[in-house]
Nucleic acid binder design. Structure first.
Length: 316
DNA sequence: AAGACGAAAGTGGTTGA
DNA sequence: TCAACAACTTTCGTCTT
């Protein structure tokens, strides 16, 4: 879903596109990215939604749901609802706490933290969620996605899927899963780079989690990769539209089935970039889409032969 | 010199007996 | 459980710009 005039995010200080200098942006809430409406450059992909996590449809609901304190979150092991005793030796008014009471406060603090993270399960959860958060910020994924990933991880724990598997593996799998569910696909390779676990392990855990939790996830489509690759190659909006169009055509002709989605996306972008005279080398496209030049070439050949696109071929 | 092309051999995952 | 298989990768030599 694409929404114009993003609120309250940049009303007062609009972002300016570094590429074409335009001020008008489009917020793609679905992907959590701000995209320049003129040239398609992704300006930022780190949007934090500062609104409440609930919606109220009438004043009664608003009454019920309004509460004091930080919003509930799945990314903290106790959902952010517990009390934390500050480590500063100040009282509520900011005065120093007398030395006499210090040791008492110190003991209270210790007990509080013992209670907060009481058993092994909670300790694991704490660790897993911080790991989840670390990976998500390495990959600059939006907060909503972290919540989803945390939710998946929690249900995995609940269904006793962790036993015998590594916490990091399941956490990475949950993240990968969330990416696919929210249509912000990252490749397994990208997740593996951010995680401390290898690709194989994440894949195994992913399949296991999906199977056991009955998560329906349709395979990723080339279209979902296009906007990201386009902006990484700093290509124009026209190219993006054309590439999307080509992918649609390719899908219709059955050129996508069995093929890696990244490869198809890469070749479509390659074709589109040539058509608009913004040619990028196969090597560059291969790099951002994480396939080899050979794959780009093979998909490219299939596209031009099956879709009879009139490409101004330089050579014969 | 860089980019494009294609052949050949190797890899990891799926499928069907 | 194993072999066959398609897609993809790696590597490398040749041709084009």
């Amino acid at each position: 879903m694409v929404v114009k005039n993003p609120n309250p995010y940049n009303e007062n200080s609009p972002e300016i596109c570094g590429d074409c200098g335009s001020i008008l942006n489009v917020l793609d809430q679905h992907r959590g990215e701000v995209i320049c409406s003129i040239c398609g450059l992704v300006i930022t992909s780190k949007i934090v939604d500062q609104g409440p996590e609930w919606r109220a449809f009438d004043s009664e609901q608003r009454e019920k749901r309004t509460r004091v304190g930080a919003p509930m979150t799945f990314t903290i092991h106790d959902r952010g609802l517990s009390t934390i005793i500050d480590w500063k030796n100040r009282d509520f008014a900011g005065h120093e706490i007398p030395a006499k009471l210090r040791s008492q406060i110190y003991r209270l603090r210790r007990w509080q933290s013992r209670i907060r993270v009481s058993d092994a399960t909670e300790r694991n959860l704490t660790f897993a969620l911080s790991e989840l958060d670390r990976m998500a910020s390495v990959l600059t994924l939006p907060k909503s996605l972290r919540e989803t990933a945390a939710k998946i991880y929690r249900s995995a724990v609940k269904s006793h899927l962790i036993r015998g598997r590594s916490i990091e593996g399941i956490a990475a799998a949950a993240l990968y899963c969330a990416c696919r569910m929210l249509k912000i696909p990252r490749t397994l390779q990208e997740i593996a780079d951010a995680a401390r676990v290898d690709k194989k392990e994440i894949g195994r855990s992913y399949r296991f989690v999906v199977f056991r939790l009955n998560l329906s996830s349709n395979p990723t489509k080339p279209i979902d990769y296009i906007s990201r690759f386009i902006s990484e190659l700093s290509l124009s909006n026209n190219v993006q539209k054309k590439a999307t169009e080509i992918v649609r055509l390719a899908e219709k002709k059955g050129l996508t089935s069995g093929r890696g989605p990244t490869g198809v996306a890469a070749a479509s972008i390659y074709v589109a970039s040539i058509l608009f005279g913004e040619r990028r080398t196969q090597r560059d496209i291969a790099r951002v889409s994480q396939v080899t030049e050979v794959t780009v070439r093979n998909r490219f050949k299939e596209l031009i032969s099956k879709l009879d696109l009139d490409i101004p071929l330089k050579r014969k």
